[in-house]
């Protein structure tokens, strides 16, 4: 009897209603703070895990595309037509971001596509074509492909490899190390037009590349961009 009473559930000490409410509120606020911190962990690190796995899958998918091209070589361009949103599109290499820096580009710039890697603006040109081959990528979270975007300088090489060949572009308009360089408004779609700054209907006579990302790095009230021109192409 005595033993049972001692081992029974401890009861909470009696507290005044005010203490109960204040204590509960305090716990809620601490919990809220912990959740906010967890969200930061999610954006900085959690999103990258999913992206890394997706990049692996996309790399395999792209290599399969290349194999298919080798077998039935007639028209590599036809590969683009068969691509669905989110499919592997090609490889992006930016030496400024690191000697061996490369990411698999996906077709499309919907949220779901960009979680997996840099995305190709659907209605923009294909690499090597006249027009403006345009890519968007995250600067924070999701593997942060464009984390060092402001470090891009005029003259930097951007290499793109797709089913049709390997293309090198040279930037002529870039942030040049300025964290606020080439900052534009969200609505400034002119940067991805076939001829940047001209209406969409303008017939392009140059093969360009344009990259866009968010500004500031940890938000998205604005955008940043960089543009370059094709200097070398090796068709398959």
């Amino acid at each position: 009897m005595h033993r049972k009473a001692r081992r029974g559930r401890r009861r909470a000490p009696k507290r005044s209603p005010f203490a109960v409410i204040a204590g509960g509120l305090g716990e809620l606020m601490l919990t809220g703070g912990a959740i906010v911190l967890l969200f930061v962990v999610y954006t900085l690190w959690g999103t990258g895990i999913q992206t890394a796995a997706a990049q692996n899958d996309l790399r395999n998918q792209f290599e399969l595309q290349l194999d298919e091209i080798d077998q039935e070589t007639d028209e590599p361009e036809s590969v683009y037509e068969g691509l669905e949103l989110g499919d592997a599109y090609g490889i992006l290499r930016i030496p400024r971001f690191g000697e061996n820096w490369e990411r698999i580009i996906v077709q499309g710039v919907e949220d779901e596509d960009l979680k997996n890697g840099p995305g190709h603006y659907l209605d923009s040109a294909d690499p090597g074509e006249l027009g403006n081959f345009s890519i968007a990528a995250h600067r924070s979270g999701h593997g942060e492909p464009f984390a060092k975007f402001p470090e891009l300088h005029e003259g930097d090489i951007i290499e793109v490899e797709t089913a049709t060949g390997v293309y090198q572009y040279q930037l002529y308009d870039a942030p040049n190390g300025d964290p606020d360089g080439n900052r534009i408004e969200i609505q400034d779609t002119w940067v991805v037009n076939p001829v940047p700054g001209e209406p969409r209907s303008t017939e392009p006579d140059e093969a360009l590349i344009t990259l866009t990302t968010c500004w500031p790095r940890w938000g998205s009230s604005h955008r940043m961009y960089a543009t370059g021109i094709l200097i070398n192409a090796e068709e398959r």
Partner: peptide, 15 residues
Amino acid sequence: FPWVEDTFDINRVTV
């Protein structure tokens, strides 16, 4: 968190 991220437009990179 994925829902929060998509719903509140905190991470957009396209024009």
